[in-house]
């Protein structure tokens, strides 16, 4: 089973209108990232998951899902706090970039 199949659902009442594009509500993002809505709110608060629309509820681009999942795993598995999460993610990205350059 692919990993994405594991994250099967998002909780949004059916009667609410769907977004025009591939956007995720906060609840949907939480569901797909296997996080609590509070965790997503914390990521939002620390500017670690920026919404691309507000109506006024935030809507997120699906492209941020891998980064959100990573942040949630780092928080849950290693206890990385949200205040230092941005630094950790930036450093990991820089390490990956440097390792990629070294490999070339």
């Amino acid at each position: 089973m692919k990993q994405d199949d594991m994250f099967q659902a998002a909780s949004r009442p059916a009667e609410k209108s769907a977004p025009s594009r591939d956007l995720l509500s906060l609840a949907e993002l939480a569901w797909l990232a296997d996080a609590t809505p509070q965790m997503i709110s914390d990521l939002l608060e620390w500017d670690l998951a920026a919404p691309c629309e507000r109506d006024p509820e935030p809507w997120f681009a699906v492209e941020i899902l891998p980064q959100v999942r990573k942040a949630v795993r780092l928080h849950r598995d290693l206890g990385v706090g949200f205040c230092s999460m941005g630094l950790v993610l930036d450093l990991l990205e820089r390490i990956e970039e440097l390792e990629r350059r070294l490999a070339e």
Partner: peptide, 19 residues
């Protein structure tokens, strides 16, 4: 009750279905 459920398809797009 019906909940709108989102899941990722194989192309990484959001699919919504009623559960």
């Amino acid at each position: 009750i019906h909940l709108q459920v989102a899941r990722m398809d194989e192309h990484g797009r959001v699919q919504r279905e009623s559960k």
